[in-house]
Design a protein around this nucleic acid. Structure first.
Lengths: 137, 137
DNA sequence: GTAGATGCAAAGTATTTGCGACAAG
DNA sequence: CTTGTCGCAAATACTTTGCATCTAC
């Protein structure tokens, strides 16, 4: 098991407050990709005094620190996910909103190659697939 | 040369107003990916009476009709681009904001394959590469 | 002539921020 | 102690919408 968010904060010199600990805990326990509102709801159940401004401030801080990553899927609010060693992209079910995480090394390699081709070093990328479930035959 | 936006509107039964004609013209002439504000600025130079609400309404309509496509690049406003037969993705220079359009058939194929693997039919996708220019050696 | 489009300003969302009070290191 | 954080409410940024008027077909 890898570092917890708390450990990452310490490692990166981010001051740990009660609020941040709660937000960290909720994000760690989330297997989905909550938006700020949803995160705020979950956090509020643990400590109702935490304000949504703090949630916004914290996810932004965690994102800048490389603890969380932000997704802006089509036509929705920003959603967050814990960033860990294993990079993956997303396949989104356009009907249900279900999100499937996947990894495809070959696509990763090709992306790097495309960037090189134009004289760039790839520093980041975003790949989202939108699909509809096939009828099981 | 392919259909103009006006022709597409007629083909798709979209009523052509003066405002829409101006917006169509500006988008046709744009080689970049303007956001609504920028589009509104350009449109205003031709007809200053067109309101930004109309610009919003029109890009939305054009998007739904398959005339324009909307991009939500990292941390910015929505940007629009004319949709034509040739699909492409984007490589964004993180320093300058410059956007390079590229096509990579192999990546396209692999995306479809990934979707299939999870039992989905790919209906849409988003691929954005973010890079920094290499020093020319 | 009529359904749909426009302009305006007001209302919605999502997110950020100023400020005085408070807490972590 | 001192610097940075929090909660609150106000502010901002982007986008949508109600309504009366106007226009394309």
């Amino acid at each position: 098991m890898s570092e917890t968010i708390e450990q990452k904060c310490i490692a990166k010199g981010v001051k740990l407050t009660d609020q941040r600990r709660v937000i960290a805990q909720v994000m760690s326990e989330s297997t989905d990709h909550p938006d700020v509102d949803e995160l705020y709801n979950r956090v509020s159940k643990i400590d109702p005094k935490i304000s949504i401004a703090t949630v916004y401030r914290t996810v932004k801080l965690f994102e800048e620190t490389g603890i969380l990553t932000k997704h802006e899927f089509k036509g929705g609010k920003a959603r967050y996910e814990e960033l860990n060693e294993s990079h993956h992209d997303h396949l989104i079910d356009v009907k249900t909103g279900e999100i499937i995480e996947f990894v495809d090394e070959e696509i990763e390699k090709l992306q790097k190659k495309v960037a090189e081709k134009y004289g760039y070093t790839l520093v980041d990328h975003k790949l989202e697939l939108y699909g509809v479930k096939k009828k099981s035959q």
